[in-house]
Design a protein around this nucleic acid. Sequence first.
DNA 1: ATGAAAGCGCTAACAG
DNA 2: CTGTTAGCGCTTTCAT
Lengths: 349, 349
Amino acid sequence: MNGKRDRQPTIIDVARLSGVSKTTVARVLSGIGAVHAETRRRVEEAVQQSGYERNHLAFGLRTGRSRTLGLVIPDISNPFWADLARGAQDKAEAEKRSLLIFSSDWDAERERRHLQVLRQARVDGIILNPATDDSGLLRQTEAPVVVIGSSGERFPEYSSVRSDVAQGVRLALDHLIAAGHRHIGLVNGRDRRVARTRFVTEAQAHWQRHGFDASALPMDEGDYTVESGQAAMTRLVEREGGRMTAVFAANDMMAVGAILAARAAGLACPRDISIMGMDGVEAGSFTDPGLTTVDKPRYDMGVEATRLLLAEIDGAGDIVRTVLPCRVVERASVAAPRRSVSPARKKSA
Amino acid sequence: MNGKRDRQPTIIDVARLSGVSKTTVARVLSGIGAVHAETRRRVEEAVQQSGYERNHLAFGLRTGRSRTLGLVIPDISNPFWADLARGAQDKAEAEKRSLLIFSSDWDAERERRHLQVLRQARVDGIILNPATDDSGLLRQTEAPVVVIGSSGERFPEYSSVRSDVAQGVRLALDHLIAAGHRHIGLVNGRDRRVARTRFVTEAQAHWQRHGFDASALPMDEGDYTVESGQAAMTRLVEREGGRMTAVFAANDMMAVGAILAARAAGLACPRDISIMGMDGVEAGSFTDPGLTTVDKPRYDMGVEATRLLLAEIDGAGDIVRTVLPCRVVERASVAAPRRSVSPARKKSA
DNA sequence: ATGAAAGCGCTAACAG
DNA sequence: CTGTTAGCGCTTTCAT
């Protein structure tokens, strides 16, 4: 309508301007094949002068490689996923790829639509945190896929990247037990994904490995939000009373909720109750006390997933399952319980 | 290598399968032009059977519309921008567009490269928060651009969306003044953008409008991170001593830092000092006390920017500058100062 | 109501 | 070292 310039210059305009064929232009542009120094100079000058920029659509159509990747995560405005997305973004940029990001909100139908869009865009590969562990959604996808998150093992046909949740759980429990806690409340997710199962399974196994009784590891559930963590914590406190000296939540948001709920219930953290989270997001350091947590390598997971995907695209075929270690970040929400050790001695207080 | 299927089916495969020409297939696919009901049925069946999905690259090349938009923001892992990105993403999805998201880290050079990639991808339009207020970077961009953030007015040739920072500043000051504060520390950014200028200018103007002296509005600076807010707060407390009864930071992260620093300095918030932020990000509710703040409509800014951009792409030409209002979110970090009113009475304490 | 043909901008043989 | 040619998969006249 208001055409600032007539239209984007094409390779042909450049060819005309420099008096060569478009093949020659393509050659200097791609750097593949030899061209006379003087010719190259003239072409480069014409590129400059015309403001030519490669049409990526045409390039992709012709070569069959869009040099674009897809990332489908639950929610870009969730700090955990935002950190991971940033890692993927940076790696993609470093490898001269573009990244199409979509949020599924844990909704299988939205996920399906996003995957379809990605296929239509002919992305070279897809990084996906599956909305559900029901596989099958990916079946019709030709492009390489890397699965991120615990669900990885539900998709044996794809490479995957996940943090070592089981190890993280052990780390957390060891940390809590070392501090003297023997009655620990668990706040788990209530979704249907393997992450949830693994959290509680490993916690119970490790608890028993320490020789403690399962009844001293009560559990409640939330949906990974702060509010749900608050609610779960409130129920747990009500149900367990003073026996429970610590709480371990499956993610930092729920742990933050637990800190808030503890305060509301008149419990001082960590004096009356210790609280530990899992994720390592920055917001965990805003609470009072700062949240002690098990840090997952979010950014690196994004980088690694992208790296694996690119390797697969380039035909370094093998599917690989990367498991990145977690580590404890000590802040201030965990301390020794006041009246220490076994529930049996409780009356002595 | 391991070719699950030979290759993605094309419109020609569908045509062959249904015994019509590709033109006819294109017609039923686009819904444009009349086709016999029976023919349509056969084509649709063939589409189903073959698993055909439109090649978006070819579509874009042919039509000159990629149906893809670009979003360039400072940092996707920053909650403020993540919220905004989510708004843009949702709106784009609702309008059947894809969104290419890039983080510039406030670096003009990275921004330049991102814009170039976007142009090469032939996006239909770009939403941008400029890394600097130096305009000119956009000059060679053909596609419509919508600028987000205060810098909008530095780019008079483009539509823009911003929150009403001046109004937000007035709201905050009024809130603080109403609570009884007469000596308020300001924590501003130290960048070179108009947002920074506007914050302090409006604060001072409004302060004087209330008839107070400029010397009772001391200022320090940070770079919008928690740590920098902590540092600025520490300096401010040192410098102003007990005279200062409240602090107002230009964003929530620095305000969170101020809360942390106040505690470290042995100041109880809000008893000894009130703290107010600006943004409204969720993390502000994690601190103790919860951060009272001026909420900016982050998500809606993303939605609105996308809406404006799409309108412009569709030729509803006029450039428009949307200014969205802020609102106060009261939590608990603001209260009446202990020894109220004027600095003059200070000695009576 | 349907088809044939041209062409979007580019790369990749293939000649010379 | 350089040019000619043939498509990539799709939409869009223009015929029929």
